[in-house]
Write a protein that binds this DNA or RNA. Structure first.
Lengths: 146, 146
DNA sequence: ACCATCTAGTCAGAACATCTGACCATCGTC
DNA sequence: GACGATGGTCAGATGTTCTGACTAGATGGT
């Protein structure tokens, strides 16, 4: 926030993130997945292969349980995810990716790869590898969840 | 969106950005600037030293003129910015930083420096410099506004 | 000068995202 | 078993953002 010409690292990180998200959303809308929003995507992106608890999703996405629940409801109504009871805890419900969800994930992977390829073309292989390594290490101190 | 374990670059960029924004907001609230929100800050961050037109702010922040106008109104009511007529165009109004705005900007700079210092301590000087250089170059293809 | 067109900004209304607070059901433990 | 902790929902409020329609002023060609 509030920088004139010297770009702080946080802000510099913002541009690629925004660009990637915009590309993903645009590609999805183009392929018929036009009933998905950025907030829904951010939640959905954290669902594990076997399903994830709502509370865990909320925690990782840094939103409240209520917000997560609301977004998951929408995703469920649109057919992207499904709720199943957690066999190990009768209170909990696992959120799992449904068929339509897998389809959109496959598309997202493609687009991610395409965009990263463009970035690599701009920066060069070595710089991109360094960038990824630095960001991964930075995550250790900027991501409270792993 | 939608990554399981291989972290795409866009998402990797998200963590530092979110961390920086959270730190800024927390520090501001602590120092008494508790009437500012993330969205307002994102707009305010793009105001130039001599003032900036609403339309330009909207364009750079990738929001509509209406959204920008709304946020600027709030910032004005809180005393962070002020509206002055643009001498070169009677239709336009320049948004300028007001006294209270300068105070919060000074604080933001301090916090940015502090957080970056922490990151540098974690990554090392050289890696941090490489990271900044890579992100700056990446901005050329991910930021439509310069 | 004059009109067509473009640009800066506002108004109105709606959708969405997000929060706080209160609540219920179930789990784990002493 | 009773009790505090945890998973999740309900209700209501606030904030952010959009689309569409509009006004006022600028600009360029004839």
């Amino acid at each position: 926030m509030t920088e004139p010409d010297h770009q702080n690292l946080g802000l510099l990180c913002f541009y690629p993130h925004r660009a990637m998200e915009a590309r993903l959303l645009a590609a999805m809308a183009e392929e018929g997945f036009d009933d998905i929003t950025a907030a829904q995507g951010r939640i959905a992106a954290r669902i594990g292969p076997q399903g994830t608890r709502l509370t865990d999703l909320a925690e990782q996405a840094l939103v409240t349980k209520q917000t997560a629940g609301h977004l998951v409801d929408q995703l469920e109504r649109a057919g992207y995810v499904r709720h199943v009871p957690d066999p190990t805890d009768a209170r909990a419900r696992l959120v799992q990716i449904a068929e339509r969800g897998w389809a959109v994930i496959a598309l997202a992977r493609e687009v991610e790869a395409r965009v990263e390829a463009e970035w690599t073309a701009h920066l060069g292989e070595e710089t991109t590898a360094q960038l990824r390594a630095a960001l991964t290490r930075l995550r250790e101190v900027t991501d409270p969840y792993r």
